[in-house]
């Protein structure tokens, strides 16, 4: 196994970490309008991710940085090619981060409402757009001999990619509502569970269609395994949610996300960005990667730091493991 194959796996792991963690952050952001009925409930939801959302988002920066270091051509082609969708994602992440931090800083109705709109839309749009982006990566886009994207933004808005967007949107919202059921107390917890039950069924439906489409279009034996795992985990998440086993439901919604990412990457391998213009011009793990020296350095750094990061991030979740109820929100009683 070459080092660039190891790094292909590591990049997939980082994206899995990102979607697993920020997936429920996006979900929570969407639920502030879908589930919360009043100011206190909105605050309960926001505070379930309060201490952790920022650390979760760094997984994205790591994905960006690691792709730059390990596959410079992938980084260059992907982000210059998917220019406008990425711009929209960046704008959303900027607005969303500021919104969490600033919303409660003034006791002014209009101020809070504006930031709440920001939280909702800036969670919903990236949740959708990441699906569009990854579906397009797997499907292939026009790339020329110089490794540059030659299509337009309209090429990215094909039915398959749009379905991919819908899948990540509903999957993250489902993941978020399972997380909400796990982290809250009182009435909102019960409602989060019933919403998760509905969202779980919708997700199972659209995800099955999308994953089968992926399998038919670009799948192989390994990706079929991940497909089966994804669907099985999703069904288990729905079942455990019905049974009120919130921890297990969350575990399996997380496994679903991991399996979906794994399936997309397995369908992709050994390409990293297939060219629809000429398969010979596709970006692959070998023609897009860095030198063995850089990959070796980065393997040491990642091998040492990733476990450390996982330990202290897990520790944070443990410190803030308690559920939040209305009586924990300051200034409401």
């Amino acid at each position: 196994m070459h080092l660039h194959d190891v790094w292909f796996v590591l990049i997939a792991v980082v994206w899995t970490g990102y979607f697993f963690l920020e997936g429920f952050d996006f979900g929570i952001g969407i639920l502030t309008k879908l589930l919360a009925r009043d100011e206190t409930e909105r605050r309960i939801l926001i505070n379930t991710i309060g201490p952790v959302w920022d650390g979760n988002e760094v997984w994205l920066l790591t994905a960006g940085g690691a792709t730059f270091a390990a596959f410079p051509d992938w980084y260059a082609t992907l982000f210059s090619g998917f220019y406008l969708p990425l711009l929209l994602i960046l704008v959303c992440l900027i607005v969303r981060g500021v919104a969490f931090e600033y919303r409660a800083k003034r006791d002014d109705e209009r101020w809070k409402r504006n930031w709440e709109h920001a939280i909702f839309w800036a969670s919903l749009l990236p949740a959708f757009l990441w699906g569009v982006a990854f579906a397009n990566i797997v499907r292939g886009v026009p790339i020329d001999a110089a490794k540059n994207f030659t299509g337009s933004v309209l090429d990215l808005l094909n039915p398959y990619a749009l379905l991919g967007g819908v899948v990540t949107l509903v999957l993250f919202t489902f993941h978020g509502s399972v997380f909400a059921a796990l982290k809250t107390l009182g009435e909102i917890r019960a409602r989060a569970r019933s919403l998760a039950a509905v969202l779980g069924l919708v997700t199972t439906g659209v995800a099955s269609v999308f994953l089968l489409w992926t399998q038919v279009h670009s799948g192989n034996g390994r990706s079929l395994g991940a497909l089966v795992l994804a669907i099985a985990a999703l069904v288990l998440a729905v079942v455990f949610n019905r049974l009120g086993r919130e921890g297990w439901a969350f575990t399996y919604s997380g496994v679903t996300i991991a399996a979906v990412v794994a399936m997309l990457f397995l369908a992709l391998f050994p390409d990293v960005m297939p060219s629809t213009t000429d398969p010979a011009w596709s970006l692959t793990v070998s023609n897009a990667s860095s030198s063995p020296y850089t990959l070796t350095i980065m393997t040491w750094v990642a091998g040492f730091m990733t476990p450390v990061v996982l330990v202290y991030q897990a520790w944070t979740y443990w410190v803030f493991r308690r559920r939040i109820g209305a009586h924990h929100i300051p200034g409401t009683h």
Partner: peptide, 18 residues
């Protein structure tokens, strides 16, 4: 520059940002 420049950027994310 990716082979050179990407490494410190990735280290920044892995070591400092987290």
């Amino acid at each position: 520059v990716g082979d050179v420049f990407g490494a410190p950027l990735a280290m920044e994310a892995l070591i400092a940002f987290f």
